[in-house]
Simulated scan of single mutants.
Amino acid sequence: PPIELFSVPDMKLERGSRVALVGPNGTGKTTLLATLLGLLPPVSGRITLGRNVAVGYHRQGLDDLDLDTSVLDSMLDAKEMSFGEARSYLARFLFQGEDVFRQVGDCSGGERSRLALARLLVHEPNLLILDEPTTHLDIPSREALEQVLLAYEGTLLFVSHDRQFASLLAQELWVVEDGELQQFLGTFEEWLESDKEKAEEPEAPKKARPPRSRPQQEKKSPSPAADEHMIRIIDGLETRLLEIQLELEEASEQRDLELIASKGEEYDRTKMELDEKLAAWGG
């Protein structure tokens, strides 16, 4: 049976909005995009597209490019246009001069990503869904993508761990947090500030998370050997958390819902144990 990764309240993606979908790795952001696109069924509820909505979707690794053709021919295969129009359009994505005659198979991952986006945007979809679009892009490529998207007049929904990219483009956030999707009406920077303010609010009787450097205390401290042992345990738990995050991301990409649920539970257990060790270590 389907497993609920998080709950989604009644929400509407307004026409012309620019929304960043944010949350920890492995929480199901890519799965949500797949559900919105109709590639996966929702656990409950329904998804309705507005009339005359034309969806464009881009995700790293799903470009479906013919590696044996040239960049220019790939563009012409995507849409019928003149050579001049194709070269002019490709220039917006940094394919200039002789670059347009290169084989797609000889292009880097970032160049292929730029080409895939060019082929997608040339059809002028009015709803654009992007999953980590800046992955593999160098700085000039990312800046070119930013300029194209800033000029884009349709509705934009994207997942990105690139803080600068999200800060520049997002006017609203959908946040996966505490097992549900929450809407934040504001920019990425405003959300970070709001999140920081919430974190700074006192939550008695909880103790504040101690810094990694052991604080000075008047009471008797553990022996150096015991202290070193605790540091090794904490380091091991932090390393395991990072490993679980990567495993969750892979499971999310493979849409393995059972593994996502299992790794999510393991993450929560490991995080709880880490917090307990940090609290004990800080006294």
Score class of each variant (00 low, 15 high):
I3W: 03
I3C: 10
S7G: 13
V8F: 04
P9S: 04
L13S: 10
A20S: 12
T30I: 06
L32N: 10
L32Q: 11
L33E: 12
L39Y: 12
L39Q: 14
P41G: 04
P42R: 04
R46L: 11
I47P: 10
G50Q: 01
V53R: 00
V53C: 11
A54E: 15
H58A: 15
H58R: 13
R59Q: 15
Q60N: 14
D64R: 13
L67M: 14
D68S: 13
V71S: 03
L72Q: 00
D73I: 09
D73C: 08
D73W: 06
D77V: 12
S82R: 03
F83W: 12
G84W: 09
G84N: 02
E85L: 03
A86N: 03
Y89V: 01
R92P: 10
F93C: 00
V100C: 10
F101K: 04
C107K: 01
S113P: 10
L117A: 14
R119G: 09
E124F: 08
E124G: 07
H136T: 11
H136F: 09
A144D: 08
A144I: 00
A144H: 02
L149H: 03
L150F: 08
Y152I: 02
Y152D: 11
Y152S: 09
L157P: 09
S160V: 06
H161A: 07
D162N: 04
Q164I: 11
F165D: 00
L168A: 05
E172F: 01
E172Y: 00
E177T: 02
E180Y: 05
L181M: 01
L181R: 04
Q183F: 03
Q183N: 07
F184C: 04
L185C: 07
T187K: 00
F188T: 06
E189V: 05
E189Y: 00
E193S: 12
K196Q: 15
E197K: 13
K198R: 07
A199S: 14
A199G: 07
P202Y: 01
K207I: 14
K207F: 11
A208Q: 06
A208N: 13
A208C: 07
A208I: 08
A208H: 06
R209D: 14
P210T: 07
R212C: 13
R212V: 15
S213Q: 13
R214Q: 05
D227V: 15
D227P: 09
I231L: 14
D235S: 08
G236V: 11
E238N: 12
E243V: 13
I244C: 03
Q245L: 12
L246C: 10
L246V: 14
L246S: 13
E247I: 11
A251K: 01
A251E: 03
R255N: 12
E258A: 12
L259D: 14
I260R: 07
A261N: 11
E265G: 07
E265C: 09
E266M: 08
D268F: 05
L274R: 03
A279N: 15
G282M: 01
